[in-house]
């Protein structure tokens, strides 16, 4: 069993088998994280570049930890200190980096399609760490992993994704991943933050949170950003909280053994109350732990050479 592509650009179009391979592999890697020495020599001699054009703390640290725990050599490149500010094009930058003999590139960029663009100009394996509002596949995978860990099977679970769907790459990767794995996916958010024709992705769409939550097993709460208020898509964050905030009271509509997830960073008191975020049903910190295991699995599976078959 092998992944179809040497890149991970998104979950759209992946097969259930491929996703299961990644999740199964991640289980092994999660065990490594509990060993006394949490490092394996697997990617010794492999150079991984973390190319972050957009500020990110947790995803970058998660990837970096994953790389280091596989003994890869890690180079961090973030746009703030790079030559992208000096007018060098993206293409020139990445080709320069590759000329320094690197093997894998983990890329985060504010524009959709940049990871795909890199596959066109580089030989390295490209891993998408979030591109625009397009996809954030490792987040989608770690969410699946976390859900599977708790429920053993994703199929048939009712999952509600709440928040700013329009500008969320996490929502898209979650939607693809969950749908491929057979979950029943619903979206809920203000109608100005639901992208057009989203229902064609095979999901249910709600603007009434109370209706959306009925009988749900998992709620994935997305971060709501102040920029949306400035962009005129929301009258105020206060109003958002009133209509879409996840409160203890609203959780009564969920199934008994429900789970609360959030990709982070959390705006406490805006999209979710602290009580719920830190409550017994929250797996928000498990998601973070699982993130490292998932990224190790992805790095390992994509690191195969193009050499001989044995």
């Amino acid at each position: 069993m092998k992944l179809k592509s040497k890149h991970l650009l998104g979950l759209e179009g992946m097969s259930r088998k491929e996703i299961n391979l990644i999740l199964d592999t991640a289980e092994t890697f999660k065990e490594i994280l509990s060993r006394p020495i949490r490092v394996v020599p697997t990617l010794r001699g492999v150079t991984v570049v973390n190319l972050f054009y957009e500020p990110s703390t947790r995803t970058r640290i998660s990837f970096e930890l994953a790389e280091k725990r596989l003994s890869a050599e890690v180079v961090n490149f973030s746009a703030a200190i790079s030559s992208s500010r000096k007018g060098e094009t993206l293409k020139d930058t990445v080709r320069n980096i590759e000329a320094m003999k690197t093997d894998m590139v983990v890329v985060r960029h504010q524009a959709s399609g940049v990871p795909y663009f890199l596959t066109q100009c580089l030989d390295s394996s490209i891993i998408n760490a979030g591109d625009g509002a397009h996809e954030h596949p490792t987040q989608g995978l770690l969410d699946l992993f976390t859900i599977r860990e708790k429920y053993k099977n994703v199929k048939g679970l009712k999952v509600v994704i709440v928040g700013d769907i329009k500008y969320s790459r996490v929502a898209r990767s979650d939607m693809w991943g969950l749908s491929i794995m057979g979950a029943d996916v619903s979206l809920c958010g203000p109608s100005t933050l639901l992208p057009v024709e989203i229902d064609k992705m095979g999901v249910k769409v709600y603007s009434d949170l109370n209706k959306a939550l009925v009988g749900a097993d998992v709620v994935i709460v997305l971060r709501i950003q102040l920029e949306r208020q400035k962009g005129g898509l929301l009258p105020s964050l206060r109003e958002y909280t009133n209509k879409f905030g996840i409160t203890k009271d609203r959780l009564k509509r969920l199934n008994e053994n429900f789970t609360i997830m959030h990709p982070g960073p959390i705006n406490r008191g805006v999209e979710i109350t602290p009580e719920v975020a830190d409550g017994p049903h929250s797996v928000i910190l498990d998601q973070v732990t699982n993130g490292v295991a998932i990224r190790m699995a992805v790095l390992y599976l994509l690191s195969g050479g193009e050499g001989k078959v044995e």
Binding site: K2, T25, T42, G304, G305, V309
Partner: peptide
């Protein structure tokens, strides 16, 4: 690991 075409299942 890096010379194999297909990564062995762990």
């Amino acid at each position: 690991v890096q010379t194999k075409l297909e990564q062995p299942v762990v």
